[in-house]
Amino acid sequence: MLIMGVMAIAIARIRDLFAVSMLSGIFSLTAAAAYVVLDAVDVAFTEAAVGAGISTVLMLGTLALTTRQEKVTGGKSKGTAAFFVVAVTGAVLIYGTFDMPRYGDPIAPIHHHVAPRYLEKSFGEVGMPNVVTSVLASYRSFDTLGEVFVIFTAATGVLAILGRAGRRRREDEIADETVTARSDDASPDKDKETAS
């Protein structure tokens, strides 16, 4: 975790966005490692695949399309104000930690209210040894349904924002989209405006 701390600060300081993206990937990977030692293998797996994999690829893709270098700006006042906000938020968080159950404490309330049922009965009720899967796909499957829709929204959203329709290569798109013949009332000028 200390490594992560160093990396987070490095991310904040480094101006080369390429390096930042890679660092953020490694940051995720380290987090995944931390998840493993914290007994959250499923999460670690996902974080490694997503945080380190997909996100990094996307970032690099974006950088290829935009620019690699962050500009050096003198926004001192902004930095100070931001630091103040962050300090206050952090202080509240730290303040909040004081009454938290100790790390790994087996008598903490979270281990005694809802969770025991999952651990004790899920095998009898759902029949899966992996409790995470049981909870994910059965007890709280509605959450997962939502999650699936979130990713669906993201995918279609990216299509809507960046999709070829309305972009420079709109003509090809129209060619293969035989169903959606352009109507006359939407003026082409306006579309161009959106695209540019």
Partner: peptide, 19 residues
């Protein structure tokens, strides 16, 4: 919407609207 959104994206618009 027909006036403000490029036509090929309109179906995505309604998709997003419902979501």
């Amino acid at each position: 919407v027909e006036r403000e959104v490029p036509r090929p994206r309109i179906y995505l618009f309604y998709l997003m609207y419902m979501l």
